[in-house]
Design a protein around this nucleic acid. Structure first.
Lengths: 226, 226
DNA sequence: CTTCAACAACCAGAATCTTCATAAATTTCA
DNA sequence: TGAAATTTATGAAGATTCTGGTTGTTGAAG
């Protein structure tokens, strides 16, 4: 599995490369527009981590070039926080994901993994647990193939549960992943209870097999068994 | 699941330890280089949360030590924001993840979880003693293959007993591992008696072969024999 | 402005866990 | 051996957490 990291800032590039190598990828890197362009023309990469601001040209141009070459590499754009325009432009040009600086390495790793997986199975990406299937791209859920309408929070929760089937999940972890740092000033978990309750009701009435079980004093787990 | 927190700043250490205990880990801590080194040499930890700046030496040295001892603990480095060099060095020396201060506790929890999981990715973990089998990740217990529903405390106790079969286990040790430092201000072991009683009843009615025997004046042991 | 969907907050009852009172078992020692 | 002291077991009350119904708030759409 081969990855190209295009980033001009030395220290950050090092760190990214290190981290990806740890994940057992074969990693190459480029620090300028020209270097990146050369490598893209010469090799095939499964995934490209691409900074937008580059000496010698914009990363967006590289995206166009990639398209022209009909390369099927996945692309994750990495850019400064506020350049939302780049995001739209990038996704328009066929990037697969977007990450704003600063970001956590584990986050990047997760995205890379996800992009590669998505590319490999050229069908639509989906996750399943028993008779529940969710389509992250479309924010859609089906039970036995029947569409189930869920809200945003409900979807996020379900997504997290199905990504971690049969695993204990603390309320703090769930809150962090679904609500972000909203949790910091919260002094009760009522908002979790509400959403979990609604989600459970929907799952049950749609005939879902897996259940969201509570673990007293800790959190939840989603499982098919007792 | 055992974790070592190496951090010299008192307040932060406390908070981290608290938070990890909430996630049901058994947590120990060290505040100096020497203390950390001693503990690493003496015990096996599933994960080590390691501050770089320590009184008495650098956390990076500890990483080398760990490697020399061929311990397989996961390591998460925690350090001040701007020392990017430490990050590179740390990952080079075999750390599994890196976190810059300040960070959210939930973030740390997530990393710890991920590191531990990565370390034990080889199939589903399970422990058995006679006809009892427990699945720590799923918080599940079976007797002769039949699911047995247990509550959180009951599970934790059973987990500890089955992890240490035929061994004498003092009530203090059991309390420490299941209830954490809750025990510190307790002046009786009633909470243990209650839970052990309920667990015994469930095990017996499910036909479990091993029994939880009391050892007068000391604690318990779980065994199949008389 | 009104309506509606999404979400959070509130509340009473259920499940779980701890504490308490008291009984049973084990050890000590006269 | 046989009480007294200590430790463990048990059932029930009290405290905490979770559930599921309902209500309140907010922001977007009509």
């Amino acid at each position: 599995m081969k990855i190209l990291v295009v980033e001009d800032e030395e220290a950050l590039r090092q760190v990214i490369v290190q981290s990806l190598k740890k994940e057992r990828y074969v990693v190459e890197c480029a620090s300028t527009f020209r270097e990146a362009s050369d490598k893209i023309n010469e090799y095939d990469y499964d995934c490209i981590v691409l900074d937008i601001m580059l000496p010698g040209g914009s990363g967006l141009t590289l995206l166009g070039e990639l398209k022209a070459l009909r390369k099927k590499s996945g692309v994750i754009i990495v850019s400064a926080k506020d350049s939302i325009d780049d995001k739209v432009a990038g996704l328009d040009l066929g990037a697969d994901d977007y990450l704003t600086k600063p970001f956590h390495l584990t986050e990047l790793n997760a995205r890379v993994k996800s992009v590669i997986r998505r590319k490999q199975q050229n069908g639509e990406q989906h996750l399943s647990l028993a008779n529940i299937t969710i389509y992250p791209d479309r924010h859609a859920v089906t039970i036995n193939g029947e569409a189930l309408s869920v809200n945003r929070k409900e979807f996020d929760i379900l997504y997290y549960f199905i990504s971690n089937p049969n695993r204990l999940i603390s309320k703090a972890t769930l809150a962090e992943s679904v609500w972000g740092d909203y949790i910091d000033q919260a002094d009760s978990f009522d908002f979790i209870y509400s959403q979990v309750k609604n989600l459970r009701k929907k799952l049950k009435s749609a005939g879902a097999i897996p259940e969201i079980k509570a673990v007293y004093g800790f959190g939840y787990k989603m499982t098919c068994e007792d």
